[in-house]
Simulated assay, not measured.
Amino acid sequence: MPNLFYAGPKLDVLHEEYAKKHRIDDAAGIKAVKETTIAAPVERVWQLLSDVANWDETLEPGVRDIQLANGVTVDGRFTRKKSGATMKAQFAVVEPLRELAWTGKAFGAKAVHRFVLEPVGDTETRVVTEESMAGPLFGLIFNTAKLEAVLDEALVTLKRAAESTPA
């Protein structure tokens, strides 16, 4: 049973010492890793993943009101709404064709979310996504199974968008 009172590191520490160092909070009670292989070149997958304004169609169905303050840049801030929650987030890693990671906070929980891309030949891309979430009592309203479902949905949506986009 995860510690319901674990708050995790402060958000700035999570951003600088975890996300920017290509890791999630392994001590968080809610965390998941999912992966898929997409029949599309890494350039196409990256283009969709980094097009944050269109995540509702290419990554996270249900996401609304995405606002980018400075574009998709390291330390660039953005907000988005999903299921009534507004997440305030900040990009930690923006490595074109390789990794997109951010930290954010919503409902009192702090999260680190990473997408890592790996070309498989010239025509396929392996995508690994992982996320950790921590906040006092957050485990009472959200859990690892729900996070796994969110990550699965993101990968399925990304895969569908990448594989249906003309070359």
Rank of each mutant, 00 (worst) to 15 (best):
F78R: 05
I66F: 08
E131Q: 12
S50F: 00
E95C: 01
T157H: 14
V112W: 13
E43I: 00
D56V: 01
T157P: 12
G29V: 00
L97Q: 12
S83K: 13
A145Y: 07
E118P: 03
W55Q: 03
M87R: 08
V93Q: 09
K20I: 00
E95P: 02
R23M: 12
T125N: 15
L137M: 11
M133H: 08
S83Y: 12
L68E: 05
A92E: 14
V52A: 05
P96G: 07
L155S: 14
P9M: 12
W102Y: 13
A145S: 11
V156G: 04
D152V: 00
A39W: 08
L147F: 11
T157E: 12
A7D: 07
S132E: 05
Y6K: 06
V45P: 00
D122V: 07
A145E: 09
L48H: 07
A27W: 11
A106C: 01
I30K: 03
A101F: 06
F5P: 01
L140G: 11
I38A: 09
G71W: 15
A69Y: 10
V150Y: 15
E118T: 02
K105A: 01
G108F: 10
T165A: 15
D152P: 02
A92N: 15
Y18C: 00
P136Y: 08
A106L: 00
R44A: 13
F115I: 05
R64E: 04
F107L: 06
T58G: 08
L59G: 07
R80F: 13
A134I: 06
V63S: 08
E124I: 06
V45L: 01
V127P: 11
S50P: 01
I141Q: 13
K110S: 01
T79L: 02
I24V: 04
T123I: 03
L97V: 02
Y18L: 01
L100Y: 08
D12H: 11
K146L: 10
G139I: 02
L49W: 09
M87Q: 11
R44I: 12
G135C: 10
A7E: 10
K10C: 02
K146W: 11
E163L: 12
T58V: 09
G29Y: 04
A39I: 03
A101I: 03
I24T: 05
V128A: 15
T125V: 11
P2W: 04
T36N: 10
A101W: 07
V120K: 15
A145G: 08
E148H: 15
H113D: 10
L158E: 09
P166F: 01
K20R: 10
T125P: 13
V120E: 12
G104R: 00
L4T: 03
A154T: 06
P96T: 06
V52M: 08
H113R: 12
